[in-house]
């Protein structure tokens, strides 16, 4: 199973052993699992990530707003990834970044320079009309914008959590999301 998910004590634990959320070519299907609920109209998803262990440099995890739960659905994902530092090959710091698919027929997009972060870190995506804003925070109060982008999603979408670990053949990548909040705008 590419993704396993459990819920206990108010926390979601996701274990990913394969999959890949594509970003370079948006006509390639994602191979990911998604733990989701519905969100109609404007709103947001926010979660506090307290654990991000054993993810390969091509692995990642985060919160996602997604138009359709099928391989080529439009999405924005505010995520953590393990990055490779050129001068420090043994160091694999965690960074906050995004991936998204704006159109099935076009090139995808990602933040070119992800920001290095330390756990815990809060991730958030807000939707207002067709505008999607991904942010992260070290304390749940002060937010730093990762990306704001227009994505033509329908009125009823899914909000949730995802994780993937493309080359994690020997180990699961484990991520814990605490205090997950999906809110519909008033």
């Amino acid at each position: 199973t590419p993704l396993q998910a459990t819920f206990a004590d108010g926390k979601f634990t996701l274990q990913a052993d394969s999959g890949m959320l594509f970003f370079k070519r948006s006509d390639e299907a994602d191979g990911v699992g998604f733990v989701h609920r519905s969100l109609e109209g404007d709103g947001s998803i926010m979660a506090k990530v307290t654990k991000f262990d054993d993810f390969h440099v091509w692995g990642g995890a985060g919160v996602m707003l997604r138009d359709e739960n099928k391989p080529l659905g439009l999405y924005m994902c505010a995520m953590l990834e393990t990055v490779h530092v050129k001068d420090q090959p043994d160091q694999h710091p965690i960074a906050a970044s995004i991936r998204m698919r704006r159109q099935v027929s076009n090139e995808g997009f990602r933040v070119q320079r992800p920001d290095q972060v330390k756990l815990p870190v809060w991730l958030k995506i807000e939707r207002q009309g067709q505008t999607f804003r991904s942010s992260y925070s070290p304390d749940g109060k002060e937010w730093k914008l990762l990306k704001e982008m227009e994505i033509p999603m329908g009125p009823k979408i899914s909000a949730g959590l995802t994780a993937w670990n493309r080359y994690g053949k020997t180990k699961f990548g484990t991520v814990v999301f605490d205090d997950v909040q999906v809110r519909k705008a008033p």
Partner: peptide, 19 residues
């Protein structure tokens, strides 16, 4: 069981696989 089938994680939350 089909590992790609959707299943409930906790009330209101569903795990789906696609791709």
């Amino acid at each position: 069981a089909d590992p790609f089938a959707s299943r409930s994680v906790v009330a209101g939350w569903t795990l789906s696989h696609f791709g």
